[in-house]
């Protein structure tokens, strides 16, 4: 029966002559794709095409100006990893940056969100104020903290003044090789951690209170409560943000460029600031493009780790 009632498949010419088919095609295929087209075309033009070009460019010795382009294979990568010592320094700075951002803001945000989730009165006010730094522009934050870390007029000098010391805390934090990178990380974190806190707080507030009551009845202390109720309750966002922050650590640019431009003497240089200088100041576009590919490979590698772990369903 089914075979008998089944219609013969239409040829394309027949389809175009069929009014209802034409309307269906228009409504369900053509018009939706016309709606999608503008954003897709812009995105292809700005992101996808240059990303592919970037890979090719990284295999050339192009300077960024002129027509002289030679294909050099993996030469740029070889130079990066085996000859360029400043790149090694930048990479290790990126890893230090990651170590800082995977610990300090997370501990601060977890601690603060735990405190805040227990507070009834004033919770909204705290939440809003702690979030304020996150909405500031990096140029503004950088300027504010550059002044606050000034050796003569900044916070350090004021502390020295109170303690009757001179030049102990009032030092050029951004101008010394030992402190420059971590000072910038501190400033970036000042702006960032409130955002992390808000995410954790929202996750904590969605944990059913019954679980805390149960933990109390079982005689759990506050640490055990945090360890066995809070942490598992916010695990998805915690793990996700670990991944995002690990990726961001390889993309770090704004604050370093604004505050020290990688100095003094390369002490706070990261891959992105090096890339920017190579591509836009030093006429080494091919070399800069190779650094961009390296950053992307690191980012992709981090995503791969997290995806694998998630696939395996590991308890993290």
């Amino acid at each position: 029966m089914a075979v008998l009632t089944q219609k013969k498949p239409m040829t394309i010419a027949e389809k175009f002559n069929d009014e209802s088919w034409r309307r269906k095609f228009l409504n369900n295929v053509l018009i939706p794709w016309i709606f999608i087209a503008p954003l897709l075309i812009i995105h292809l033009y700005v992101v996808a095409v240059p990303a592919v070009q970037g890979i090719y460019m990284s295999l050339t010795d192009w300077k960024g100006v002129g027509m002289n382009v030679n294909f050099v294979g993996l030469e740029n990568y070889r130079e990066l990893f085996f000859e360029d010592e400043t790149f090694g320094k930048a990479l290790s700075n990126n890893i230090l940056w990651m170590a800082f951002f995977l610990t300090v803001p997370f501990i601060l945000a977890l601690f603060c969100a735990t405190m805040l989730s227990q507070v009834r009165r004033g919770g909204m006010i705290y939440r809003s104020i702690l979030f304020v730094p996150y909405v500031l522009a990096s140029v503004v934050t950088a300027t504010i903290w550059k002044n606050l870390l000034n050796p003569q007029r900044g916070v350090g000098a004021a502390v020295d003044n109170i303690l009757g010391l001179e030049g102990v805390f009032g030092v050029a934090y951004l101008g010394r090789t030992e402190t420059a990178l971590m000072s910038i990380a501190f400033i970036d974190n000042w702006q960032f951690w409130g955002f992390l806190m808000i995410l954790f707080l929202a996750a904590m507030q969605s944990i059913p209170p019954v679980l805390y009551d149960a933990a109390k009845i079982d005689g759990a202390n506050r640490w055990q409560e945090f360890r066995h109720v809070t942490l598992p309750g916010i695990r998805p966002i915690l793990v996700f943000m670990f991944m995002m922050v690990a990726i961001f650590s390889f993309l770090a640019f704004d604050y370093i460029f604004l505050l020290t431009q990688g100095g003094p003497g390369g002490a706070s240089e990261v891959i992105a600031t090096q890339l920017y200088k190579n591509a836009f100041f030093r006429f080494q576009a091919g070399y800069g493009a190779a650094q961009g590919v390296v950053i992307s490979i690191f980012a992709g590698f981090i995503i791969l780790i997290f995806v694998t772990v998630k696939r395996r369903g590991w308890d993290i």
Binding site: H43, Y45, V46, V47, A48, V49, P50, A51, Q53, G54, M57, G64, I247, F250, L251, I271, A272, L275, A279, F280, A285, G288, A289, Q291, G292, V293, I295, S296, A299, G300, I303
Partner: peptide, 19 residues
């Protein structure tokens, strides 16, 4: 879009500048 959103700006900023 999912894959493209994970491509860092640094991968394409130099060719994009040229374009």
């Amino acid at each position: 879009f999912l894959v493209a959103s994970t491509i860092p700006l640094w991968m394409y900023i130099v060719p994009l500048f040229v374009q």
